[in-house]
Write a protein that binds this DNA or RNA. Sequence first.
DNA 1: GATACATCCTCTAGTTACTAGAGGATCAAG
DNA 2: CTTGATCCTCTAGTAACTAGAGGATGTATC
Lengths: 138, 138
Amino acid sequence: MLTIGAVARQTGLKIPTIRFYEAEGLLPAPPRTSSGRRLYGDGHVRRLAFIRHARQLGFELPQIRNLLELADHPERPCGDADAIAAENLQAVQARLKQLRALERELKRMVDACATGRAGRCRIIEVLGDHALCAVDAH
Amino acid sequence: MLTIGAVARQTGLKIPTIRFYEAEGLLPAPPRTSSGRRLYGDGHVRRLAFIRHARQLGFELPQIRNLLELADHPERPCGDADAIAAENLQAVQARLKQLRALERELKRMVDACATGRAGRCRIIEVLGDHALCAVDAH
DNA sequence: GATACATCCTCTAGTTACTAGAGGATCAAG
DNA sequence: CTTGATCCTCTAGTAACTAGAGGATGTATC
């Protein structure tokens, strides 16, 4: 059983952020010591690491709530879970496309630099292109 | 030359957001009509699309400012540009790793669902793992 | 057992990155 | 020349944290 400070160190989250996620219902309220201090287990830590990474990947809290729901109840009417998974898969794949394009361009710049020639930077064009943006180009 | 509304429609950004990016110095102030309305060109639109996509990929405004600097001055002392590019490349590759893991898992779930068997959801494990998180696991 | 320093608690307020709305001017169509 | 859409600035609200005040508890040391 870990204190909130230990969990913060392990996950890289700030202490108030952990309490915030609990208040938001993303993390189940952990048991407390007799004096009221929170005690976390491995499940909590994994869930928090998941939330952190998902946030770093640009998912918003409602989407993360959504994914956690899916993880928590995979046995529900298959259609529901499938719809959520499929929808999120699309969002993930759109992000992947753009990130790969950005990666290519940054690599090209680093390489160009290594060989002396500066060459111009095309990252704006690369990420400015809506063709790669399958999400909501509307 | 486009009005701010047209640019908003093209980029998917809200009008106040465009003005906000201008105030933050991420977008150069465009010329104005005699009555004070903003008029944008293609460069502005591309730059805004870049900002939008970068934000969707989880980059924060300071990082985006950083990348825009790189794009705006690729001829600067090569070391600088290279350092920025290399640093961002690392961040991009870490995100790619996690997104690919998440993609695999969501695909697996959709597939499992298609063939009838529900199977349990491992997305938390997949993104909860710090091994994939090269950025700042500290 | 007393002192001291870290860590925890709750609660309020501040920050970042938008987003909505008020109040008013300007433009484009009919 | 009026009507409706669009623009302007400015202030205030929201989401997702983040920092700090004020106070209790835990732990290590003498």
